[in-house]
Amino acid sequence: MKGTAKLLLLSSLVVLYFGLGVVGPWYADVPFQGSIAALCVLLRLQTSGWRGLRTDLAFLLPFLCTLVAMGALLDAFAMANRTDWTEDALCKALVFPNSFWSIQLAVGALRLTDLVALPRGVRRFFILTHALVSKSRPLIERLWWLVCHDPSLQTGPWIIRSGRRLTVLLAAALIAVYHETEATVRVYDARMALLEENPS
């Protein structure tokens, strides 16, 4: 399955979960949230393996601990005359990862072939944006390497040196990516014109 159909299926699954599990009746339903969590973990393992799952947990676990700690703190002060802040935080400790993974898995399932199969009108925009973000990343990494090895940007304390390098990177990236954007749009239109005149 590709293109618009795949996009519609993925977005309706996400909307369905958010409608029922985040802003809907099953927000505090532990069996429901628990089974969604198990499903997300399995899918995440299948798509990105242990490494991907470890990266997620490296972010999720500290955040969930902060959430529960803040809940206990608010309970201690009986904020807004409520005493269920910790209990609510524990609920969020299940809902937040599910909402986080549901969107991540949906977005991660999209491929360039899905964009190519899109209707012609939106196809050019999505393809160029996908191409530009993919192409500009090594370009900006290369610019950063050049900035970090520029002889004029080697002196001063770490914070000043990093600040100067970042300002130079932003200024250089502006014009470099502008040229890249202009050239990529030109090459795309030229190649499409070439192919439309010579269907192979």
Binding site: V116, L128, R137, P138, R186, V187
Partner: peptide
């Protein structure tokens, strides 16, 4: 033009795009 030879960053995507 050696400064911009392709639309996408690798030949696999370029083939998907144009072939």
């Amino acid at each position: 033009d050696p400064t911009t030879l392709t639309v996408t960053p690798n030949l696999g995507n370029e083939i998907l795009l144009f072939a």
